[in-house]
Amino acid sequence: MDILIGSLVAGVLIGMILALVALGLTIIFGVMDIVNFAHGEFLMIGMYTGLLTAQATGIDPLLTLPVAAMVGFLLGVICYYGFIKYLVRGPMVAQLLGTFGLMLFLRNLALLIFGSEDQALHRGILIGKSFDLGMGVIVPATKLAAALLSVIAFLAIWLLMNRTKTGKALTATALNARGARYMGIPTDRMNALAWGIGGASVTMAGALLVNFWSVNPFVGILFTMIAFAIVALGGFGSVPGAFFAGLVVGMIMEIPGIWDFLTYALNWDWMANVPMTSLKYTFVYLAYFIIMVLRPRGLFGWKR
């Protein structure tokens, strides 16, 4: 039983961070109708930012969050003004091609700078410690802290979007860009802002993730796909949807754990022979496909 609860708790915790990853994608998509294939690469940059800042300054990795947010915001804004702005004039094919180019660019730049080895954090107050949740469920302290900080960051961005004037202007741009322009909202700046906020939220997630997940230049695409799955489930452009869908996808990623539990509980031999751990992410991809085909608006759909 503790295997099952342990898996579910792990799913919820990772899901909270994944929600923050997907938040960036859904904001950008909501405002601009463009799918950023380089999203996972933003995350990878966030991971390196967290790692290197912690190593260079000696501060605790969890405290690198503001640095990562700043880097992410700048990265998003630079990408928008330097590239995306020109891209969105073209047809959808060109947009796909372009953000793919961006993905290749960032990924290989990282390869050039950091090399292809896995790098992981070794120092930090919480690293190596764990937390007993009771009922035999023990979670790493870093994971727990990262998940909680993710929720706080998520809420902060959500408040920014809903409670401030700028946030409302952003939402207006998302609903109807042309209408917003006629109302005097500088949509170009809003787009840049969306990229900034989107970038900041995903790099923050990266800085949190690196506490218990090693980083290499190729880590991005996995999270791009996971983020797509979350956004598809939550409804493209929906912020609350991203949160709940993040939790669901976190659970989907823990299917191998649940499978282990079932194998143990049912005591069927053939179940033990299924290489579930290798198929961990397969379920995420499958979930995206099935959700899109059955429910194109997502479970909590808002736009389209």
Partner: peptide, 23 residues
């Protein structure tokens, strides 16, 4: 000299230029 990845960086820049300038 350990320039792994530079080929794909150049490659990516070309792709980005083409997609933005001549879709």
């Amino acid at each position: 000299a350990g320039l792994a990845g530079i080929d794909l960086v150049i490659y990516a820049v070309i792709i980005m230029l083409i997609s933005a300038l001549e879709p």
